[in-house]
Amino acid sequence: MELFLQRLIDGLAVGAIYASLALGLVIIYRSSGLINFAQGEMAMFTTYLAWMLVDNGLSVWLATSAAMVFGFVLGVLVERLLIAQFSGPKESPLAIVIVTIGLFLFFNGLAPWIWGTEGKSFPNLFGTGSVDLGGVTIKVQTLGIVGVLLAEVVLFYLMFQHTKLGLSLRAVASNRESSRLVGLRVGSILAVGWGIAAMVGALSGTFVASRIDLTQNLMQVVLIYAFAAATLGGFDSPVGAVVGGIIIGVVEQMAQYVDLFDGFTLLPVFLLILVVLLVRPQGLFGRAEVSRV
């Protein structure tokens, strides 16, 4: 039983990390209809920047906050300098897919060129302590990650539903031409969307780096899980990204607990996704088109 709870809570924490990166994917998909394959690599890059700050004696909290600011700036720059240049009405959406894959390779090559290929260790945001809850030992780090994700979700909800920025992000996602007609500066809003996405990505990057060595391949597996999370939850739903991430994290950990899959813990995860998509192709929380003409 203790082990079960242990695995469950571990699953929540791992899921929270997937969810965080998936949130970034969903924000970009919702506002611009694009999938950013470089989401993970941008997070890896900003995590290196945070690592440099820690290496120079800055506290982990400050370095993580700085990484999020870097992330925001990086996201805005990538959108303005690259993505926007390929987003004209005559450009094929495939061009942007290729651009983001190019970015993936760019950051993946740039990081070892700057920082070398040797793994770095990134300190843990919440220390190494643990608490005892009714016989179950839980790392403070685990609780911290789950707590940060919850805060992230609440902030996102408030931002999307109750601020003018959130409204304009939803508007641009819904109808770009009408957005311009009511006066939205679509370009700037898309850039802010990319900034926010890279910002939450940066946060998930530092979390991953506190669990495994920081190398240029830090986020590759996580990105795949994040894609799975967004697909499961529905690519246009921030709530879906979070729930999808948590489900995947928990199922993966539970598969280790029941030990039926001979180490192939991904198998039940993808079986689950397959079943959900067969029943609900738009994902758990994704919206099927509602319209009457």
Binding site: S168, A171, S174, S178, L181, V182
Partner: peptide, 29 residues
Amino acid sequence: VRLGMAHVPQGRGTFMDLSVDDNLRLGGY
């Protein structure tokens, strides 16, 4: 639009998946 000319496009240009209230709020952006 900021100069005071508003355009109701062909096909209405509704923000379909947003609420009626959000559509109006956007009109007053």
